[in-house]
Design a protein around this nucleic acid. Structure first.
Length: 563
RNA sequence: UGUUCGAUGGUGUAAAGGUAGCACCACAGAUUUUGAUUCUGUUAGUCCAGGUUCGAAUCCUGGUCGGACAACCA
């Protein structure tokens, strides 16, 4: 036995199972080139699960120097629309993939597919059936009981040819006839029990208009479309596993010359605290549980984009989750890790307060203002610095002051000293309260005049550093605080997923942000120091900047508090 | 129930008969002008029972558990 092991193949063998199949084919030289496709039906917006598939298909093509097509699987005009076509193109591009001149539609192949149907009839492998959908369903049997044959199955080839052509010509009403394959009524695989190939459907198609009144079913269109485009690996999700015998049966029955495409199935992505089915997503949109497909709480690509997720973070996520055949549910914290990791490097820092508490610096000169220098991004020296105004009256975060703090609290407390980021050390001298409610209304502090920039020559330790904003200079912004859309890890498991909706998935507050924010443009990402990452929303106006919280910073302190 | 696919720490994913590794999460410590980042460490896994073998996550047999399918949707 001559075994030939290439060292490189030995070293980097961490391939997913599809790559292994391809490597094997390459070795046996069965494979001229890798050609994949991403085949969405234009009946909804793409979501993070599609992103996995897109990254897989385009990624495989790239890795093996092949090509990947974009193909709209538009064989059901009743559900499809150009609105979806446009959004899908935008989203695939945004993910950084390019189908070049290979954007196709299954509807491009309607004539060819029709001709193939005629061929099947001539081979006596298909017949026109007059049974209604209901009757067919009644006669289908179950996995243990074979289906009853259609009484129309023994029509002559000539009769079928004539009938099928008249179906195409619009002589029969919708639902009154179908073209069905003759396969195996006793097959334990229900898809093989004389499946429907064509149905009568008078609906205007978004591309072919009213040219056709018969449309091929998925099974009779997909494999052949793959074949026409020279697809080598037709990658789809697990639920199509049972369709594979049918996929292969058509290619074989049509006697299409080799090579033929090969269907490979992988497990779709599931995410905790998320629903992923198109039907449920559509319901959330249509019933206004969210504000459209691009609501930042949606797992759609456009929703994630608006939330502040970047292309890199999603592609990196797709890489990290891997590809396999077992069912999986990925923890959203992995997605959050990916965006934090990316934004930590990319996002400039700004100071802003979301829940303000007024601080008066009693020994600071009235009506004075000075500018302090702040670093834009400690992770990126090239990001430079900026100036932040400082004055006598400030806002700090309410959480950053406690009158009776636990021992390990190192933010502001009575008599305590804390550093204002990039500014001064301040010491809490007095707490002013509303005499009726007892609510703290403001804090009076003194500042150390020698601590400018946040350090002193005596080198004394001030453990706490908090963010702040000059009250009179602060810009009021609309801040949309997003949280997970559902309360439980697997909202799909209950009877009604809508009952699991998180009532606190969106909170809108007014934030007080340093003046820099005035110049922010829609789509820009910032870290509000000590709070989280935010995306400037497209709803922003010059006098009303809108910030979407993408994700909070990790917060071990508040986590400890809860315990 | 019939077919079919699957089963490795809490969650994912590697290991092609030869040290069960990596990432996220969790936890602990170090550093820190973000209780962030960074760094170090810790907990924790081969569904079960037999068999083959010097050696099994891997091969064989039998079971268990989970998913998919019974649309004129894709």
């Amino acid at each position: 036995m001559s075994t030939e092991i290439t060292p490189s193949a030995n070293e980097v063998r961490q391939l997913n199972f599809i790559e292994e199949i391809i490597e094997k084919e390459k070795k046996s030289e069965e494979l001229p080139i890798v050609h994949t496709r991403f085949p969405p039906e234009p009946n909804g917006y793409l979501h993070i699960g599609h992103a996995k598939s897109i990254c897989l298909n385009f990624g495989l093509a790239k890795k093996y120097n092949g090509k990947c097509n974009l193909r709209f699987d538009d064989t059901n005009p009743t559900a499809e629309d150009v609105e979806y076509v446009d959004s899908i193109k935008e989203d695939v591009h945004w993910l950084g993939f390019d189908w070049e001149d290979r954007m196709f539609y299954a509807s491009d192949y309607f004539q060819q597919i029709y001709d193939w149907a005629v061929l099947l009839i001539k081979k006596d492998k298909a017949f026109v059936c007059d049974l209604t959908a209901h009757e067919v369903s009644d006669m289908r049997g179950n996995p243990n009981i074979p289906a009853k044959p259609s009484p129309y199955k023994n029509r002559t080839v000539e009769e079928n040819l004539d009938l099928f052509e008249r179906m195409k010509n619009g002589e029969f009403s919708d639902g009154s006839k179908t073209l069905r394959a003759k396969i195996n009524l006793a097959s334990p695989n229900m898809h093989m029990r004389d499946p429907v190939l064509y149905r009568l459907l008078r609906a205007s198609h978004h591309r072919t208009g009213n040219k056709w009144c018969i449309y091929p079913m998925y099974d009779f269109a997909h494999g052949q479309s793959d074949y026409i485009e020279g697809i080598t690996h037709s990658i789809c999700t697990l639920e199509f596993e049972v369709h594979r015998p049918l996929y292969e049966w058509f290619l074989e029955a049509l006697e299409l010359p080799l090579p033929r495409p090969r269907q490979i199935e992988f497990a779709r992505l599931n995410l905790t605290y998320t629903v992923m089915s198109k039907r449920k997503l559509l319901e959330l949109v249509k019933s206004n549980y969210v504000n459209g497909w691009d609501d930042p709480r949606m797992p759609t690509i456009c929703g994630l984009r608006r939330r502040g997720y970047t292309t890199e973070s999603i592609r990196n996520f797709a890489e990290k989750i891997g590809v396999a055949k077992r069912e999986n549910i990925i923890d959203v914290s992995l997605l959050e890790f990916c965006i934090r990791e990316n934004l930590n490097k990319k996002a400039n820092r700004i100071l802003g307060v979301l829940n303000p508490l007024k601080v008066v610096i009693t020994n600071y000169t009235e009506n004075t203002e000075e500018e302090l220098e702040a670093i834009n991004n400690p992770e990126n020296a090239n990001a430079g610095t900026r100036k932040i105004p400082f004055s006598k009256e400030l806002f700090i975060e309410r959480d950053d002051f406690m009158e009776e703090p636990p021992k390990d609290y190192f933010r502001l407390k009575p008599g305590g000293e804390v550093r204002l980021r990039y500014a001064y050390y301040i010491k809490c001298e007095n707490v002013i309260k509303n005499t009726k409610t007892g609510e703290i209304t403001e804090i009076h502090c003194t500042y150390d005049t020698e601590s400018k920039g946040g350090k002193t020559i005596d080198g004394r330790k001030v453990k706490g550093t908090i963010h702040w904003v000059s009250a009179k200079n602060a810009i009021e912004c609309e801040v949309r605080l997003y949280d997970r859309l559902f309360k439980s890890e697997n909202p799909e498991s209950g009877q009604d997923f809508k009952e699991d909706l998180n009532p606190d998935s969106l909170k809108v507050v007014t934030g007080f942000v340093e003046p820099f924010i005035i110049s922010a443009k829609a789509g820009e990402k910032y870290q509000l120091e000590r709070i989280g990452y935010f995306n400037v929303d497209k709803d922003s106006k010059p006098d009303n900047i809108v910030l979407n919280r993408t994700v909070t910073l990790k917060d071990t302190w508040s986590k400890n508090l809860k315990r």
